[in-house]
Each structure stands twice: as structure tokens, then as C-alpha cells.
Amino acid sequence: MNPIWVLAKNTLRKSLQARSLFLVLFFALALVFFMIIACKGDESFRQKMVLDAGMTLLKVFGVFLVIFNTLPLFPGERDHHTLHAILSMNVSRSQVVYGLFSGAILALILNFVLMVAIFFLTSAGIGLPLSFSMFRSLVFLFEELCVLTAFSVFFSIGTSFLVALMLCFFILIVGNMTYSLHLIIHETQGVVAKGIAIAYYLLPNFSLFDLKDAAINSQTIPYSYDFAAILYSVSLCVVILCLASWLLERQEIS
């Protein structure tokens, strides 16, 4: 059997043992809480609030799930000496990285699907029409979380848990604020501006997964954007995982 698949299944099992599904329960409670807050407004406001709250909570709980589910994976394998056993079974270090990443993605899919199902049921319960654009936004959100998972795997290999945790939040903030570099580019000139421009395109840009601004302007986003977003997230994940496996190969596992 493919070692990546075996590692992925094992990682998913560990995630379930760690009661990661409790997050889904808390997501449902938080959604109900926001519905109670929003019940004061009129029908359209209530629907908008539930939609905004649902999407935001999906993002917040998705981020929590990714970070707290992925970060302990690699240190766990190392501390329990299972990493030695895996590597002694002719499994390469790259396969370990891809296996852990695949397992984390499987756990993310399971939790994300459950949270989306709760969100859709709640939305249908209050008569919020389910649209295709909503589905598209969810796909974009999932892609963003996949990229964050790759970063979590990378940081968990290179640093300790606490540092990795801070770096994950840092990359999330940087990713959401990458567009601010445009401001600096406009105010600088020459080599510095070029350097910042290069950094702008090399840094992860999470705002590309957020189409709310365009939706507010009633701009129609072509479907080619969806395919580009998939390609962008896959490329970003592959680049980070390549760096992660390179980092792991340079580490001495004692």
C-alpha cells in the first residue's frame, strides 16, 4: 500500500482521537449565538447577518482546526519515536511530509463538510436562499485553509509548537494584508520598489480567495478565476511542501 495513503489514514485517525469533531459542535453553538444576536433586525438584515456570521465562523473555526490539528502532528511523531519507525521502513522523508499533509487535509475535509452542512441547514431553516456564489465562496475558503495547512506542516517541522503557532497566525495576517504592499510600492522607487513588488508576488496572497469586494461591486467573476484559484492554491501548497521536505531532510532525527 502507498505509504502516503497509510500515513494520511493514520493522521486522520489521530485527529478523530483528539476529538477534533468537537469544533463542529462549537461552530454550531456559535452560529446559534449569532442568530440570536441578529434576530433583532428585519428579515433581510437577519439573513445577511447569518450569511456573514456563517462564512466568518467557518473561516475562524477552519483556521483553528487547521492550526491545532496540524501543528502537533510532526512533533507528536518525533516525540513518540514513531518517526524513526516510519523512516526505517524505507519511507522517504518527503513521503512523510506528504502523508502528514494529506491526513491533515482529510481531517479538514471531514470537519469542513460537517460545518458547511450545519451552515446550510441553518440557512435553509431561516429561509436564506442558497446560491451558487455561496458555494463558490466556500470552495475559495477551503482552498485558503489548504494553503494554511501546508504552512502549518512546514512550520511544525522547522520550529517548536509555540513558535509555529505564532508563525501560523503571522502568515494568516500577512496573507490577508499582502495587498498593503501596493501602498509601499507606490511610495518608493527604484530597486526597493522592485524588491517589494517581487515579495508581493512571492508571498501568499489570501485576499485573492476573498471575492466579497468584487461581489459588493456586482462584478461578475468569470469561472476561469475559480480554476486559477485552484491552480494557485495547489502551486502554493506544492512549493511549501517541497520546502518542508527539504527542511526535514536536513534535520537530524535522533
Binding site: 495587498y179 498593503s180 501596493h182 501602498l183 508576488y201 512571492l202 496572497n205 485576499s207 485573492l208 471575492l211 469586494d213 468584487a214 459588493i216 461591486n217 462584478q219 467573476i221 468569470p222 476561469s224 478565476y225 486559477a228 484559484a229 491552480l231 494557485y232 495547489v234 502551486s235 502554493l236 506544492v238 512549493v239 517541497c242
Partner: peptide, 26 residues
């Protein structure tokens, strides 16, 4: 290869989102 793909798709995606939406972000 994937770095080039990443940068290329990033530039392509940004070109699709219109200037208004970018102005909001900036």
C-alpha cells in the same frame, strides 16, 4: 515550476478583480 505557476496565476487572478475592488482593499 510551481513557483512560476503560483506567481503567474496570482498575477492572472489579480488582473480579473477590477480596480474598484482593489481600491477597497488598498
Amino acid at each position: 515550476l510551481f513557483l512560476v505557476l503560483m506567481v503567474g496565476t496570482g498575477i492572472f487572478m489579480e488582473s480579473i478583480i477590477d480596480s474598484q475592488a482593489l481600491l477597497v482593499r488598498k
